[in-house]
Design a protein around this nucleic acid. Sequence first.
RNA 1: GUCCCCAUCGUCUAGUCUGGUCCAGGACACCAGCCUUUCACGCUGGCGACAGGGGUUCGAAUCCCCUUGGGGACGCCA
Length: 494
Amino acid sequence: MANEVRVRFPPSPTGYLHIGGARTAILNWLYARQHNGKLILRIEDTDTGRSTEESIQGIIDGLNWLGIDWDEGPYFQTDFTAEHQAAAQKLLAAGKAYKCFCTKEALDSKREAAMVAKQEVRYDGTCRHLTPEEIATFEATGTPSVVRFKVPERQGGVGYDDQVLGRIEQQYSEISDFVIVRSNSKPLYLLCNVVDDIRDRISHIIRGQDHKDNTNRQILLYEALGAPVPIFAHMPLTLDTKRAKISKRSHGEIVSVQWYRDHGFLPWAMVNFLCLLGWSAGDDREIFSKEELLTAFSLDRINKSNAIFNYKKDDPKFITDPKLLTINAHYLRTMDLEELARLVKKELAAAGIWQAAYEGEQREWFLKTLDMTRERFYTLKDFVTQGRAWFADDFEMCPQALKKNLLKHAELQEWLPELAGRMAAMANFTAEETEKVARDFAEEKQTKPGIPINGCRAVLTGQIKGPSMFEVFEHLGKETVVRRLRETGKWFAK
RNA sequence: GUCCCCAUCGUCUAGUCUGGUCCAGGACACCAGCCUUUCACGCUGGCGACAGGGGUUCGAAUCCCCUUGGGGACGCCA
């Protein structure tokens, strides 16, 4: 099993799953599933005081909702602190790391000064060449120290063959001795990460390009620890329209997977969309089933350049990236109706307008309602907003419908109740028959059919758009149609 | 300041490795038309890009160099 594919997703607990993190998780998951490998979930909870039950649960909830399952874990980095420390001791003992007694303040000011002077910013190696006597003196006085990795003083450089970027190399001289253990003896990310990946026998590290510069330092660690170096693949980052990293701080809830769950998005639509950010199959396909994605996916088709999450805060028409909306709508409109019904049930229940009959004697009616209306919908929320009139009488009327299709034609205030009377007398309340009645009515009033018909749309559905009105008449049913048409006056009264 | 990476329509991208079939293809968005009681769907059409400059070559989006632009990193954060 030496060639077993083992990948990992190592989020730090933040209370929510970031869409960038979700994308990383998805690609790792795809790679694991595609190669019959294992996905390991590891919570990187070192340092952060924010590592709480809730913040960890937020990550797990997000993954569960997306349908990303893992094979091992969650492991917690802090459970392996002793192992991390042992690795540091091993390096220290082997002369591959050294104690550094420089104070944080001194280093900070040096770094600050270098930044300001636009000089090279790196550790100057002050403690690298301390004599045993000097070290003994520091220790005798109880001077706190950190452990730094001793970057080899060789010619040439370290490098690796990135599966996305190609060959990446860096000169040893460009890498300064980095800290691997804090002065409070807590090991740092760079070390922990490597020790954990070695223990978990990770074969492929698929992560964001923001980790690219860590890689060479980590390879040095692998070598010093005598462990095989995994294969790396650095995926492009997701930026905002100003090419800045997307973050909850500057973009709000829109960057968290939970937001999409709470706003009527379908998990697979989300997965599909996120995959397309920085990857393509090489043909024109954009909609992928899980099976198709598992077949089509490959690391070498991941893009090198960063992708932009096309979200414009000030555009009310698009609550998020329009492509995501399109993909969500696609699945909403084509997915299995029964499955859709289960999802819509939750929305109706949350809105307080669910009725048990929708699963009983009105089941067929309910399913047909969804099928009729989903053609125009983008998210599950639309069923309880634009589609509310199908399930409840207390719907709002959209302003354009009110203005353009009702108030503009004052005569509708009399006409619609009159039409209600005709419809009440109908024996066969079908689309064909209602159309006939409606058209005859318009002709009689010497007006365009669209005027009474769209007036009906407003009064019956509250919308300016929707399915064919004749189908609406039939499906909504005579009783409701007549009742609402008779109440036309209330809209004028408002 | 130093190092690393990247660069095709507004956005996601195909094409780049293996130059010619690309005066650059698809999708989203946008615009127009058709359809229609409305909107949507659908269909048809339109708008719209190889960052700039050098080179190599018979020929460059594709190879090389420079410039510019963007991103990342340089932490006792992860």
